[in-house]
Amino acid sequence: MTVEKIIEKVNRFLVDEFEVAPELISPEANLQETLELDSLDYIDMVVVLESNFGFKVKPEDFVGINSFQDFYDYVCDRVTAKELV
């Protein structure tokens, strides 16, 4: 899966699941503030990630993810690692 396809898929589920306006999503925007995430929302995000991309997410994986770009990089790295196995 290409980086562009991954970002497109991530943005689509963020808009659908977290009801955020697509124009608010940009690589430099703060993920938590833009999506207004609380601890339960992070659990929802883990479930959505696992079901959409087929890899397991650990809570500590979210440490250091601040921007949408950080999130895209994380998902791309995990998808690439999964494809290599």
Score class of each variant (00 low, 15 high):
1 M>W: 02
2 T>F: 12
2 T>V: 04
2 T>G: 14
2 T>A: 14
2 T>P: 06
3 V>N: 12
4 E>D: 11
4 E>C: 08
4 E>G: 08
6 I>A: 06
7 I>R: 04
8 E>P: 01
8 E>S: 10
9 K>M: 01
9 K>G: 00
9 K>A: 06
9 K>W: 02
10 V>M: 01
11 N>P: 03
12 R>L: 10
13 F>K: 00
14 L>P: 00
14 L>Q: 00
15 V>F: 11
16 D>F: 03
16 D>N: 12
18 F>K: 03
18 F>L: 08
18 F>D: 01
19 E>L: 15
19 E>C: 15
20 V>K: 02
21 A>N: 12
22 P>H: 07
22 P>R: 11
22 P>G: 05
22 P>L: 08
24 L>N: 15
24 L>W: 11
24 L>Q: 07
24 L>A: 12
24 L>K: 13
25 I>M: 01
25 I>S: 01
25 I>H: 01
25 I>Q: 00
25 I>G: 05
26 S>C: 05
26 S>H: 13
27 P>S: 09
27 P>R: 11
27 P>D: 04
28 E>M: 13
29 A>Y: 06
29 A>S: 15
30 N>I: 10
30 N>Q: 12
31 L>Q: 06
32 Q>K: 15
32 Q>A: 15
33 E>D: 05
33 E>H: 03
34 T>E: 03
35 L>K: 02
35 L>C: 08
36 E>P: 04
37 L>V: 09
37 L>H: 07
37 L>A: 04
37 L>F: 14
39 S>P: 07
40 L>T: 10
40 L>E: 03
40 L>S: 06
42 Y>W: 13
42 Y>R: 05
43 I>W: 04
43 I>N: 06
44 D>G: 15
44 D>Y: 11
44 D>T: 10
44 D>A: 14
47 V>Q: 07
47 V>F: 11
47 V>S: 09
47 V>Y: 14
48 V>Q: 06
48 V>P: 00
49 L>V: 03
50 E>C: 07
50 E>F: 10
51 S>L: 10
51 S>C: 09
51 S>Y: 07
51 S>T: 14
52 N>S: 15
53 F>D: 02
53 F>P: 01
54 G>R: 09
54 G>P: 01
54 G>T: 05
54 G>H: 08
55 F>R: 02
55 F>E: 01
56 K>L: 14
56 K>R: 14
56 K>E: 13
58 K>L: 13
58 K>V: 06
59 P>Y: 05
59 P>M: 07
60 E>Q: 14
60 E>I: 12
61 D>M: 02
61 D>V: 02
61 D>A: 09
61 D>S: 11
62 F>C: 08
62 F>L: 11
64 G>W: 10
66 N>G: 13
66 N>P: 00
67 S>I: 04
68 F>R: 01
69 Q>F: 02
69 Q>S: 05
70 D>G: 13
70 D>E: 03
70 D>M: 08
70 D>T: 03
71 F>H: 05
71 F>E: 01
72 Y>W: 08
72 Y>H: 03
73 D>A: 11
74 Y>W: 09
75 V>D: 00
75 V>W: 00
76 C>I: 07
76 C>W: 03
77 D>R: 13
78 R>N: 12
78 R>T: 05
79 V>N: 00
79 V>R: 00
79 V>M: 04
79 V>T: 04
80 T>P: 01
80 T>N: 11
81 A>K: 14
82 K>R: 15
82 K>C: 12
82 K>Q: 13
82 K>F: 08
83 E>V: 13
83 E>Q: 15
83 E>A: 15
84 L>S: 14
85 V>N: 07
